[in-house]
Amino acid sequence: MSMTLSKRLSSAMIRADGPDNWFIPTDQLKQILSRASVKDEIIILFKEEPPEQLEQLIDRICGKHRNSRPDVCRKVFAVLLMIDQARSIKQFAAHNISDADIPLKPNEEDKSIITALRKRQESTDVWIELDGWSNTNYRNFLKYQWRVDAPFFSKDTIRQDHIPILEDQTILPWIPDDRLKDKNIQSGHSEVRAIRIHPGHHNFDNTYDTPY
């Protein structure tokens, strides 16, 4: 019996360097949530819907072409699968939520609306009220969204002196490597550590720089 997409995503998580830090490498996520596998899942979830509407939803998740548009929501769908709320993808798509909007923010203003997520825009906020979600679903979404959004480090942005601004909850794709312990430098009250970046989260090479 084949593994469900949810189990495959959970099995793809690897431990990052740090306490209780887990993430799904971007290359693994794209491989698991290929267009073919997403199509099979969407047909099962929404078998009552017309085929043309299902194709539109699949396009929204994966993009129409190999070089997918920036407003796909593959990461969002991955989180919904892992928290057993995959059918909510239609609600997220209706609010034009994409992977670029992760991390979504919790509702901290109206305590009467327990399960609502906020998409921050330039002029206003978009609120998504999630009917049928339990508090556990809600908390798990807020937690798991970080696990599919580990940053990618590009030599092109470094050459442009662009330093990404990362939030405190960001899970960095540093993977443990005992061979690097001898490269750590202790000086006064600080320590400089050598790290290894997961190969799916950088495009460095030996002619430009080593990935740690």
Rank of each mutant, 00 (worst) to 15 (best):
residue 182 D to F: 12
residue 101 D to C: 10
residue 47 K to I: 07
residue 174 W to E: 02
residue 192 V to H: 06
residue 16 A to H: 03
residue 211 P to G: 12
residue 98 S to I: 05
residue 134 S to P: 08
residue 70 P to T: 06
residue 180 L to M: 10
residue 192 V to R: 12
residue 41 E to F: 04
residue 27 D to P: 00
residue 60 R to Q: 07
residue 26 T to K: 13
residue 52 E to M: 01
residue 16 A to T: 03
residue 137 N to D: 15
residue 114 I to F: 12
residue 94 A to I: 02
residue 17 D to M: 10
residue 79 V to Y: 03
residue 117 L to R: 04
residue 51 P to V: 07
residue 123 S to A: 08
residue 9 L to R: 08
residue 66 R to Q: 12
residue 82 M to F: 01
residue 46 F to L: 10
residue 120 R to G: 02
residue 87 R to E: 12
residue 48 E to V: 07
residue 4 T to F: 06
residue 149 D to K: 09
residue 195 I to T: 06
residue 149 D to N: 15
residue 104 L to W: 12
residue 170 T to E: 05
residue 163 I to K: 10
residue 59 D to N: 15
residue 193 R to V: 13
residue 16 A to D: 04
residue 11 S to K: 11
residue 185 I to F: 15
residue 34 S to Q: 07
residue 32 I to H: 06
residue 124 T to P: 00
residue 34 S to W: 04
residue 173 P to Q: 07
residue 28 Q to G: 03
residue 155 K to E: 08
residue 203 N to C: 10
residue 183 K to I: 04
residue 87 R to P: 00
residue 42 I to R: 01
residue 180 L to H: 06
residue 78 A to D: 01
residue 87 R to V: 06
residue 168 D to A: 12
residue 185 I to T: 05
residue 149 D to H: 11
residue 22 W to I: 06
residue 128 I to N: 04
residue 109 E to A: 07
residue 68 S to N: 09
residue 211 P to D: 10
residue 127 W to G: 00
residue 36 A to Q: 14
residue 181 K to H: 10
residue 99 D to H: 04
residue 26 T to F: 08
residue 86 A to M: 07
residue 27 D to K: 11
residue 136 T to C: 03
residue 1 M to L: 11
residue 206 N to G: 13
residue 55 E to P: 00
residue 96 N to I: 02
residue 152 F to P: 01
residue 199 P to L: 09
residue 110 D to H: 02
residue 9 L to Y: 08
residue 103 P to C: 03
residue 167 E to V: 10
residue 26 T to W: 09
residue 153 F to R: 01
residue 153 F to Y: 09
residue 100 A to P: 00
residue 50 P to A: 09
residue 138 Y to C: 03
residue 147 R to I: 04
residue 69 R to T: 05
residue 7 K to F: 04
residue 162 H to G: 03
residue 75 K to L: 08
residue 95 H to S: 08
residue 49 E to S: 13
residue 207 T to K: 15
residue 52 E to N: 05
residue 139 R to M: 07
residue 143 K to L: 14
residue 82 M to W: 00
residue 61 I to Y: 02
residue 209 D to P: 00
residue 178 D to C: 02
residue 93 A to F: 03
residue 86 A to G: 00
residue 169 Q to K: 11
residue 136 T to F: 06
residue 24 I to M: 08
residue 111 K to R: 14
